[in-house]
Structures are given as structure tokens and as C-alpha cells.
């Protein structure tokens, strides 16, 4: 890093993956889902309704470029061309600005569908902690939404709120979770909901002799309490599943589990791809229906 460069403590890892045990060239239907969020963008490619590959990266200056770059990652890794994809669905905050999408579906419906695939059909409650919003969703065994709320008004309980504390403490964001458990005693939560006030409160705690880890613990606890109070409106039915970037922060996740008295279902996939995956799966269902209709007409 060049001298004078500001270290970006908030920066999280991007990822790109394809399932090399599958050959997309043999597939009947290839669909893609592009989730352009306010902070991160993901592209997921499904072959015949099964996850084939994904790419997750930071959202750039504009939605069309972010969508293109996200998909490019999977295409390059697999040797696929855009023309090989039968149907593309856009979702997320920038869903209407995905240049090559055939349709746009809200991130609520897509997250439920994606979580249904990632966590299985027994998932009934999904908590998505995104970069600039927080969603709580109930769904049925098919991943259809039955109740939802989305909070994108306030930074409390979102990834941005976490980035703020990473910057303030000058600790890389990926280390926050682990550090929050390295304390002599578990501190009480930071009392302010508002991130601005919580920030000054955190500074006050440092001044009063708290270690950085303890301040982080107090902040993670506040984050967990905040998110749990958000879910309260719709309640939690098991099985419970967490998606979004903060699902990777054990400091928040374990505290949420403790408060709710339940454990979040595990998944082998990147928690950030749920929305894009759901979109790709919606595309697959749509293509199947069209195929069936065409077959019937013929």
C-alpha cells in the first residue's frame, strides 16, 4: 500500500466460484440471476435449476456496469457467453438497470426463493442483512413469501453500520466477529440504535477504558438486538436462515441466535448470493412453464 493511502478496514472479500463437476454445455436451460445491491452485486448462473456458478463483488458507480462485471466473472471462469444463457432476471436495488435482463423481480421474493434452495424447503424465516437494508421474510415450503418487512431507511442493523465500526476501530471487517468474543466479560449493548449516536457512544466507551474488542462486542450485541427487534414484528418460525454479508460475522450471528433461542440453518454456499440465486431459479421456473406451454400448443 502506498504511503498516505487510507486503509480500507470496511473492505470485504469478493468471491467467484463455478461447479466444475457440472458441464453447462449439456444443460437444457441455462438461466442467470443478477442482484445489484446498493453495496454488493452478485451474478448467479443455474443449469437446469441447479446452482452452477456465482460471482460476488462490490457495486461500482452505476448499476449497468456492476451487473455486467458481476456476470463477466462467471462467464470468464466457465467459458460461457451471454448468448448461452436463455433467460436473465434482475433483482435488488438496481434491478431495473440490468442491461441484459428479461425481467425484474423484487429482492424479497428472490431471497425467499434462494434461501429455500440454499437452506432447504424447511426454511420458514429468512433474515437478510444486506449492505444498506435489513429484511425479514416468512416463506412456505416452495419459497413463496407469506410475510415480509424490509428496512432500508436506517443504517442500524445493516452492513453499513458494521463498516462504520470497522473504520472507527481500525480493524478489518472480517475480524470483527472473532474479536468480539475475545473479551473478559460480555459487555452490555451500546444503547443507541442510531449509528451516529452509537458511534459517539463507542468512542466514549474506548475513552472510559474499554478495550477495542469489548467495544466491538458491545456494538455486535447492539446490532443483534436491533435486528431481533426488527424480526419481532413478523416473528420467527423455524427453520431459520440468515443471508447477506453480515451472515459472515459470527459476532452478530451467534448473538442473534442466543437472543432468539434458535440456531440458523447452515449452508455450504456464500450467504451473499441468495438474491441472485433466487432470481436465476425464478428464471428456470418461467422457462419450464414456457416450454410446457409451447409443447402443449404444438
Amino acid at each position: 500500500m502506498a504511503a498516505g493511502d487510507k486503509k480500507e478496514y470496511w473492505r470485504w472479500a469478493e468471491s467467484c466460484w463455478t461447479d466444475d463437476s457440472k458441464n453447462w454445455r449439456d444443460a437444457r436451460i441455462v438461466t442467470a440471476g443478477i442482484d445489484v445491491g446498493s453495496v454488493s452485486s452478485q451474478a448467479v448462473v443455474c443449469v437446469d435449476g441447479e446452482l452452477y456458478g456465482y460471482n460476488s463483488m462490490r457495486t461500482g458507480n452505476n448499476s449497468p456496469d456492476s451487473a455486467t462485471n458481476a456476470l463477466k466473472g462467471v462467464l470468464e471462469k466457465s467459458g460461457m457467453k451471454l448468448e448461452d444463457i436463455t433467460y436473465v432476471i434482475g433483482t435488488g436495488y438496481g434491478r431495473v438497470n440490468v442491461p441484459f435482463a428479461h425481467k425484474a423481480i423484487t429482492e424479497i421474493a428472490c431471497h425467499a426463493r434462494g434461501a429455500n434452495y440454499m437452506g432447504g424447503p424447511t426454511i420458514r424465516t429468512i433474515l437478510d442483512m444486506g449492505g444498506q437494508d435489513c429484511k425479514a421474510i416468512h416463506c412456505d415450503e416452495k419459497g413463496k413469501v407469506t410475510n415480509f418487512l424490509m428496512n432500508d431507511k436506517c443504517a442500524a442493523g445493516t452492513g453499513r453500520g458494521m463498516e462504520v465500526i470497522a473504520d472507527l476501530m481500525q480493524i478489518p471487517i472480517a475480524e470483527l466477529g472473532e474479536r468480539s468474543f475475545d473479551v473478559d466479560v460480555e459487555p452490555a449493548a451500546v444503547s443507541s440504535t442510531c449509528v451516529v449516536f452509537a458511534k459517539s457512544e463507542a468512542l466514549g466507551l474506548l475513552k472510559s477504558g474499554y478495550t477495542k474488542n469489548k467495544v466491538i462486542a458491545a456494538y455486535c450485541q447492539a446490532m443483534a438486538e436491533r435486528v431481533v427487534s426488527l424480526i419481532e414484528r413478523i416473528g420467527v418460525e423455524n427453520d431459520f436462515f440468515i443471508t447477506g454479508g453480515i451472515a459472515k460475522n459470527s459476532g452478530v450471528v451467534k448473538r442473534i441466535e442466543k437472543l432468539l433461542g434458535t440456531t440458523a440453518a447452515a449452508t455450504k454456499y456464500d450467504s451473499q448470493i441468495a438474491g441472485a440465486l433466487g432470481a436465476a431459479l425464478f428464471g428456470y421456473t418461467l422457462m419450464q412453464k414456457q416450454g410446457a406451454a409451447a409443447a402443449k400448443a404444438a
Binding site: N147, L149, C154, A156, T193, C194, F197, S229, I234
Partner: peptide
């Protein structure tokens, strides 16, 4: 489906 539009912030819970 129950669709909740709104938010909860420091000042309270505001959903329609």
C-alpha cells in the same frame, strides 16, 4: 401475504 412497508429507527416502529 402480509407486506410491511416502512421501517424502525431510533424514534420507533413505523410500518403500514
Amino acid at each position: 401475504m402480509i407486506a410491511n412497508y416502512g421501517y424502525k429507527d431510533g424514534a420507533g416502529e413505523f410500518y403500514i
